[in-house]
Design a binder for these strands. Structure first.
Lengths: 199, 199
DNA sequence: CGCAAAATTGACTGTTATCAAACTTAGTGG
DNA sequence: CCACTAAGTTTGATAACAGTCAATTTTGCG
């Protein structure tokens, strides 16, 4: 893998585990204390409200890390979206805090804050544009890529419905801003225009 | 102050500074690296979109800490809402990461995730109920308290408009769930019912 | 008391959700 | 290879929640 590991310097040992599409990585109440780096595939972290409404908190792509918790137990679900390989890195039990782990936690917090900006004050078109640009940026600024997640996953990440996501995709496509090479493969035809839509 | 300091154990020196209502604590682009504990008063952290829409990321009350950043510079505004006293604690420059700071960062991340749940998938009534219950819990589970922030601040925190906030307050009041002792002082008359509304 | 800012209330609008149906796609077995 | 199926996606018609615009009331402060 060409991505430089942000976990370089961790003294902990780690093992690699593969998960099938849809497989659960952890669930609310599970013991926390291990965190994960995505080697390949993609992960979805989410939680359900009592009546079944779902909010996806984050997607994690190859090279990214997740699974830190403030408490001893997890409060979200983590699932593999596609077949996914994870390095499990156990947090030192002695309470020692490495600067790397702190940096990862702070980056996670910044990411969460950007997410709040997106769903708190942006329209459906702005959210979808922002999501697509973010996906491209996180994969090195490529102009086309496969979305590992379904429209429902995207809707639950952006606080929209599946129908609205579909309609906005159609709108961006007919405006010539994106092209759907296939249902899951998006090409950003006018990246700068898309960026300007993110408000 | 009766609140146990979560920063106990930090070797750093600190100073205390007072800010008037509305005063800026930091702004986007300002050098980061210092974090703050609220001694008295309340703080609002927010960001503006290009067209003036505002999202409040967090409120911080007495005893709470904020100001950590992943980058060298801040990406949000922090302002005192009322007259506020802050202990400024400089992050050790040698890159050392104390377990306490990591814990604070992880708690901040959890708080951000709860916020995403709230604005991503909940209705106006659920958001306001959740907000009021959270405010009570953070002040030790008291049944009445003063809101330091305006309706506009609350609206921008919850991703609503000031009119919607006002209408939901009226609705909760006429349902007997809350009482407005004054415009800024809320009494939670039926805390458990309010909790059940948070979904 | 008088003024400006904040909050409330009302009428109406609009974006997004909901409900429903049709269409695609990928996978399975004849 | 081609139906057949089921899941996922798209599209359409309608509804609802929250937003916008506007006017009024309340509050806090000089």
């Amino acid at each position: 893998m060409s991505i430089v590991s942000p976990t370089a310097g961790f003294p902990s040992t780690y093992s690699v585990v593969t998960f099938n599409a849809g497989a659960e990585i952890y669930a609310p109440g599970d013991k926390a204390g291990t965190f994960y780096q995505v080697e390949f595939g993609a992960v979805r972290v989410h939680r359900l409200l009592s009546d079944g409404r779902r909010q996806v908190i984050a997607f994690h792509l190859a090279g990214e890390t997740f699974g830190f918790e403030a408490d001893r137990t997890h409060s979200f679900f983590a699932e593999a979206i596609t077949q996914t390989g994870l390095r499990a890195i156990s947090r030192p039990a002695n309470g020692e805090a490495s600067p790397e782990l702190l940096t990862l936690a702070l980056r996670g917090m910044l990411r969460a804050h950007e997410h709040i900006m997106m769903i708190g004050r942006q329209t459906a078109v702005e959210r979808i544009s922002g999501f697509l640009v973010d996906m491209a940026d996180r994969q090195g600024g490529i102009e086309y890529f496969d979305l590992p997640m379904s429209r429902l996953d995207i809707a639950d990440y952006l606080g929209l419905t599946i129908e609205t996501v579909s309609r906005v995709f159609a709108k961006l496509r007919s405006a010539g801003l994106i092209k759907l090479r296939s249902i899951r493969c998006v090409e950003l035809k006018k990246l700068e225009t898309l960026r300007s839509l993110c408000a």
